[in-house]
């Protein structure tokens, strides 16, 4: 599970460099997220641009990644493909996360 991390203007952007977050990848994803977010900025943006498929195990791993951040820290999402967006909408998890169109939109100045 390849994830890359950069910090821009106090926000940590983690890009998923995989096409799938599925049952075969969920545990690795959660573990890598824990490593990358052990300390650092209070706000994290998960960039899902390269992800074309997610199942409920992958969704659960993203929720777990948010929960393991602990209080006072926040996980937002950006660049959801239609297939990924569908899973968040059907399960109503789109109401839980801040969702942005792109990394630029997620990290840009608040309008």
């Amino acid at each position: 599970m390849n994830l890359s991390s950069t910090i821009t203007d106090g926000t940590q952007v983690i890009s998923v460099e995989e096409e799938r977050i599925d049952a075969a990848a969920a545990i690795q994803f959660k573990d890598r997220m824990r490593e990358l977010t052990q300390d650092g900025p209070t706000r994290i943006v998960l960039d899902l641009e390269q992800v074309d498929f997610i199942d409920s195990s992958g969704l659960g791993a993203i929720v777990a990644s948010m929960k393991q951040l602990g209080e006072g820290r926040k996980l937002d999402l950006c660049a959801l493909s239609p297939n990924v967006d569908k899973v968040f909408r059907l399960t109503r998890m789109d109401t839980i996360f801040g969702i942005y169109g792109s990394v630029a939109e997620a990290t840009g100045p608040a309008s």
Binding site: S56, L59, G60, A64, M66, K67
Partner: peptide
């Protein structure tokens, strides 16, 4: 958020 489900979907 601490009690959000991680499965059962």
């Amino acid at each position: 958020s601490a009690n959000l489900p991680e499965g059962g979907f």
